[in-house]
Design a protein around this nucleic acid. Structure first.
Length: 729
DNA sequence: CGAAAGGCTCTTTTT
DNA sequence: GAGCCTTTCG
């Protein structure tokens, strides 16, 4: 049994053994946090003989939860499955499905994601005759979300409202909640807020959970918001065995209402709390840890804490400057190829991190051009793709016909002649009758049969509406009887979705996405029909992209800095180390946000075990135009002794001049090897870029890369096997 | 009345 | 460059 404690250092051991009362574990990066949590749970079960049913563990992502389950089953095999583990949202969804009826939440509710939330805000604003140009729906939603994270309902919000804007938001908020209710839907924030509401209103229910969960643990506590903390406090109030784990320096979700004060308040709310610092880093080289510390130590709103490692000094941090984002991507790919060919790393050891999703584009292009396998973690996130959301909306509508948002999404997809105007009219007609849009369709179908004289729509439109209604009814009856996959195929088939997708631009790719969704559907196939559908729908709303990150294949990982939290890689590239990108321009006028950018940079660097590359570009194309960005201020904070490569801020002006000159002049040099049919100096034509001159060429893998200066466009690097250059005389 | 085409504005990060 | 909205055409 002592193997649970054997391989732990003194601080880790203390964290594992302190099982009663409140505990705050401050865990630096790479300090074996996951290990401590899993060992602590194993210790509770195996040594203290705690029934696993009595343990609740909250994680930040589903992936973290799965990983913990896996590690746990190695330590305490058989029982690991029976503890409650998951994200706040997943756990709350479970609680509300079980007990939500007490506060009027029906068990069959659907969960609205951000996309749906925006649609609903727009709809609410429309109903209130508010101009979306005057108040942006996303700003309004933001306010609503913030309010919910502080458990302010519409009434509380309106009471507090001071400005004109808040008055408007209050009205929208009220209407928004009404609409959620009539659609039998909850949004992300509702899952949390309404669970708190449930517990406040029904002490008996709360007590049941309090009695069950004797031991409560929360991971990534620095990124919890007020409702989440409230929830945790309520559930653990009876036994006060609450263990929270976090690192204030890695708090990067304040824009999602995460509140660092939770950590400060924890010590206030639980004066008897024991605080344990995990300061030894087992992940990174000394150099990397020192560089990261140098970056984070500039923050003012922070308690310094001592981090150390017994790992080797390791390689210096590589700083690199490139001309633009294409060259930046090129540099990354070349460097990776070098590492791989020297057998210093496999592709799977490498992650390329960036601040904004848009930055992945240039990287992807370079990876594709060189044929280096990669996987993109976000981009257009899978479940947010139009084609995927559309199919899901069909299924949601079938499961919950009250879901107006889903109905509006699909009623004319593929186009069946039911336009905006018709839907608006339908909505206006349904509202005073208290009908959902779907029930309104049912009424209309009934009227046709009953030959009512009330004619709402033209005969043509009426027929279209009735046809749609009948189709959905038909599918609904299917959903009761068929296996989920058969039902899925039926949906895609009888709605005409398949032909519609295949006929659209990039149809093949989009169809592949639908088929990928079908693969997910298969996982639920063995459940009984009714249950299968609702589990599927909940699953697809609450998963994130990191959750599906597989380690098995040997590819480079492209990932945002936010998503990289909690992961580790031997080799990390951070690109876009520029003012305006990292730190992001939106943080310039707010010192608190600037500190968060710094933490983000810190999180990125500390993901690395052995090598870090910090790359920046002089020029970057953003919204059509091209910008010259100064090097990131974070680069300056890393002592020169820890780095290799150019310190860009010294040579910057010179570089800009040289580079701009070189590019503008596009001199035809003689650095070339000769090509099969083309050589330097040849004039060529390209389908997209027009006419140009070959500047140089060199072999790449089993291909040749040509460098071509195009008239009015600039210099491009092209692989001959792809580019189809045509020689011009 | 719906669909297609052109013009406008803004770009962070996500459970 | 893309999504969103408005205008125009059928």
């Amino acid at each position: 049994m002592n193997d649970i404690l054997d391989k732990l250092n003194p601080a880790q051991k203390e964290a594992v053994e302190t099982i009663s009362g409140p505990v705050l574990i401050l865990a630096g990066p790479g300090s074996g946090k996951t290990r401590v949590i899993t060992h602590r749970i194993a210790y509770l079960i195996k040594v203290c003989k705690v029934n696993p049913r009595h343990i609740l563990a909250v994680t930040f992502t589903n992936k973290a939860s799965r990983e913990m389950q896996e590690r746990l089953s190695q330590l305490a095999s058989s029982v690991a499955g029976s503890i409650t583990m998951g994200t706040f949202h997943a756990i709350c969804a479970r609680i509300l499905r079980a007990d939500g009826t007490a506060i009027g939440v029906e068990a069959g509710f659907v969960i609205y994601d951000q996309d749906d939330q925006i649609s609903l805000v727009k709809r609410a604003m429309q109903e209130l005759n508010l101009d979306p140009k005057q108040h942006s729906p996303s700003a309004v939603l933001n306010q609503i979300s913030t309010a919910k994270c502080q458990t302010f309902g519409p009434k509380d919000y309106i009471k507090r409202g001071r400005s004109y804007f808040e008055e408007v938001v209050g009205r929208v908020y009220e209407r928004y909640q009404e609409r959620l209710k009539s659609s039998n839907a909850l949004d992300f924030d509702d899952l949390l807020m309404r669970t708190v509401e449930l517990f406040r209103a029904h002490k008996a229910i709360l007590e049941r959970y309090q009695t069950r969960y004797v031991h409560v643990m929360v991971d990534e506590f620095q990124d919890t918001n007020l409702v989440q903390y409230e929830l945790v406090k309520m559930i653990s109030a009876k036994y006060r065995n609450l263990c929270v784990v976090g690192d204030p320096d890695q708090s990067i979700y304040s824009w999602r209402s995460a509140d660092l004060r939770n950590i400060l308040n924890f010590e206030k709310d639980y004066p008897e709390a024991k605080t344990i610092l995990l300061g030894q880093n087992y992940r990174s080289s000394k150099t990397i840890l020192d560089a990261a510390s140098a970056v984070i130590s500039t923050n003012k709103q922070r308690k310094p804490k001592e981090l150390w490692t017994e790992n080797d000094q390791g390689a210096p941090v590589t700083l690199a400057e490139t001309y633009n984002e294409q060259e930046e991507a090129q540099f990354v790919v070349n460097e990776i190829e070098k590492l791989v060919s020297r057998q210093e790393a496999k592709l799977r050891d490498v992650a390329v991190m960036y601040r904004t999703n848009a930055q992945s584009r240039a990287l992807e292009e370079a990876f594709i051009r060189y044929g280096t396998p990669y996987k993109l973690v976000a981009g257009t996130r899978f479940y947010e793709r139009k084609e995927v959301k559309d199919v899901i909306a069909y299924m949601r509508l079938i499961q919950n016909p009250a879901d107006d948002i889903s109905l509006m999404r699909v009623i004319n997809v593929p186009q069946r002649g039911i336009g905006e105007r018709t839907v608006a009219d339908l909505s206006i007609w349904a509202k005073p009758l208290g009908l959902s849009l779907y029930d309104a369709l049912r009424e209309i179908s009934g009227q046709i049969a009953g030959d009512s004289q009330k004619v709402l729509f033209s005969p043509r439109t009426t027929k279209l509406l009735v046809d749609f209604f009948k189709m959905v009814e038909e599918l609904k009856s299917r959903s009761q009887s068929s296996k989920l996959v058969d039902f899925f195929d039926r949906v895609v088939d009888s709605t005409g979705f398949r032909e519609y997708i295949l006929a659209s631009p990039d149809g093949e790719d989009r169809w592949d996405n639908v088929m990928e969704l079908r693969g997910v559907v298969k996982d639920y196939n063995e459940l009984p029909p009714g249950e299968a559908l609702s589990s599927l729908l909940e699953g697809v709303t609450l998963v994130s992209d990191v959750d599906s990150l597989k380690e098995s294949t040997d590819t480079v990982t492209l990932i945002t800095l936010h998503q990289a939290k909690g992961l580790e890689f031997p080799i990390v590239f951070i690109v876009g180390m520029e003012e305006g990108i990292l730190p992001h321009i939106r943080s310039f006028d707010d010192p608190a946000q600037m500190e968060e950018e710094r933490r983000l940079c810190y999180v990125g660097i500390t993901r690395a075990k052995s090598r870090v590359y910090l790359v920046r570009a002089f020029r970057r194309n953003m919204m059509g135009g091209s910008n010259v960005n100064a090097p990131s201020r974070f680069l300056k904070d890393i002592p020169a002794a820890l780095t290799t490569g150019s310190r860009p801020w010294k040579t910057e002006e010179k570089r800009i001049f040289q580079k701009e000159y070189e590019w503008a002049a596009s001199p035809v040099t003689s650095e070339d090897e000769s090509l099969p049919e083309l050589q330097a100096g040849d004039a060529v034509r390209h389908a997209q870029f027009g006419e140009g001159v070959i500047i140089g060429a060199h072999p790449v893998r089993n291909d040749v890369e040509a460098i071509v200066a195009f008239k009015g466009i600039g210099v491009k690097k092209l692989l001959l096997s792809f580019a189809h250059l045509e020689k011009v005389e």
